[in-house]
Nucleic acid binder design. Sequence first.
DNA 1: TGTTAGCACTCTAACCAAGTGAGTGCTAAT
DNA 2: ATTAGCACTCACTTGGTTAGAGTGCTAACA
Lengths: 343, 343
Amino acid sequence: MLTERQLIILQVIIDDFVDTAHPIGSRALSKKDDLPYSAATIRNEMADLEDLGFLEKTHTSSGRIPSEKGYRYYVDHLIGPSTKQNDVSIIKDIIQDGFFEFEQIVQMSAEVLSKLTNYTSIILGPEMFETTLKQIQILPLSSRTAVAILVTNTGHVEHRSFTIPEKINSSDLEKMVNIMNDRLKGVPIIKLQDVLSTEVSQLMKLYIDDFDKSFDYLKAFFANDNPVKLYIGGKSNILLQPEFNDVEKIRSFFTMMEKEDEIANMLKNSKNGIEVTIGNENESDAIKDLSLITASYHLGGGHMGTIALLGPTRMEYKKVISLIKGLSTEMTDALYMWYRTND
Amino acid sequence: MLTERQLIILQVIIDDFVDTAHPIGSRALSKKDDLPYSAATIRNEMADLEDLGFLEKTHTSSGRIPSEKGYRYYVDHLIGPSTKQNDVSIIKDIIQDGFFEFEQIVQMSAEVLSKLTNYTSIILGPEMFETTLKQIQILPLSSRTAVAILVTNTGHVEHRSFTIPEKINSSDLEKMVNIMNDRLKGVPIIKLQDVLSTEVSQLMKLYIDDFDKSFDYLKAFFANDNPVKLYIGGKSNILLQPEFNDVEKIRSFFTMMEKEDEIANMLKNSKNGIEVTIGNENESDAIKDLSLITASYHLGGGHMGTIALLGPTRMEYKKVISLIKGLSTEMTDALYMWYRTND
DNA sequence: TGTTAGCACTCTAACCAAGTGAGTGCTAAT
DNA sequence: ATTAGCACTCACTTGGTTAGAGTGCTAACA
């Protein structure tokens, strides 16, 4: 178990390192007001803390820096309840404005979050397996083109314009839409393709001449829908972090950020509540030297999506955690409001 | 005027430097098959080319690299007609697929273009002052929410969902839409706000009780429409270029790329046909050490949008120019097709 | 007169040696 | 239990040396 003094020293070291990104030595520490001990005393304590695995040296005669275990301890034990709520209210204002669509809110939140923290923010949009189709509408634009509008129970709207195949006339089209509205309402988005190929296609064959030829087209229409939306804010913020002074690191970071599906998978597993994974605690190799903070937002208990921040292990955990905590509850509230007016 | 031999030497130097990014000396040049001259002869020629401003040295005893004037001459005089058309056909296939919306085509083109070249591609979407409103439709989602669909003459579709203010009932809403469809059809997108505040609001006052209170809402609805869409592909491609080995350069590049309106302005001025601006020829300070290649695509003669590539001055001009040339005509064709089926 | 070989000169990049300073671990005194 | 003192370590800086690639110029050559 750590003594009281060791706790204080660990905390001061972490706070200082988070601030400066430089290793800190015993002499410099002894000059801080918080620590009325001599350099030698602190030196001994630091040696103990290192033995316990909370501190590291960059080389034999360097100052100390926190280890990942040190950060872990800090996050688990040394972070008090968050104090100031000012920052979160910025986001609150945006959400409560009420004018924006949910998509825009998410987008803006990601941006604000990254701007407030100088890290990279990632928000996973409402997940599709909770989302069901509410209605399909077709709006003709010209004799040969039309736009289809899909609406989900979460208030998400999507449109897709297309040219009408020659073999289909407008009454056929109407029939098709009616069948789809009849049979696809309430079906989870991810199951749309399935239901379409089985039930719906059976039914359509009965009513529409020459249906087989149109089916491929219809299927393709529902196909290119990426299952989950990812909003990333402040990608280039990491360039402000001194740990990214190396072109190679920057490159690997950016190539990682381009693999959106991998990132989505990374975040999908996150449980309810706040979760902090530090460095090697991360499963994905690509972020083994970064820290990831995730929180989820909900709709009436069900898991909907995830908010995350990605930054160096040397992260302002205290500030960041309280921010994310605030934002996730804000988004849960906003979603609830949406759902109420939208149903 | 340059002699035949000087032309060849200049060309070989540029080709080599574009390839390797290293200064090249007389001895290395003399070994190339293209140049059956001794190192000393080439040395003399290079000295002359330097006096004329086509070459530079990085330091007194270094090999030569092309100057901006050298690139300019190369682009103006030494690039023959493009040979292989293979690359462009990739894009052609995507466009001719016919299934995608114009927006998606533009997006994908930007991506393909950047992937083929390893530079950063920028495409300016169809410009709004050529674009007019074709129709407005309102689709109710629930008692208190609805989605509006705007369609333009270029086949661009946009939707925006909103909550219906309490003071407006559904028959009022219908009236409003009718009036808008009547009066706003054919109005250029950028003038929508104007016409709305003058004519339309006058008219609506006559028919709708309590209109004033709703007007702000309506206005806001048309407001947050950014005037022009920018598609950027391969932002992180410059990390592959050896000239970006410096974190500071990378940083300034990325902060530049975030100022989308500035970039849009940069591209707006581009005239018809291909235009190449090299280094300091660029007006914008932010890209004074980069080269920009632009081409525009059209709709029946009118200027619609711009395709551009941004890369180091040491650029594969030959390849890139033929690619962009191909793409711009492809997009012009695609637009024409769109317009025909869409009208 | 154009081309080439030869040579002195210049500058970068890599390497090495010495010196400095911040920091540590250990021991002995308080 | 705390602290002062001291020897030691290691990164970083500075200055000097060398090797290599390249140039400019001059003189010889076809």
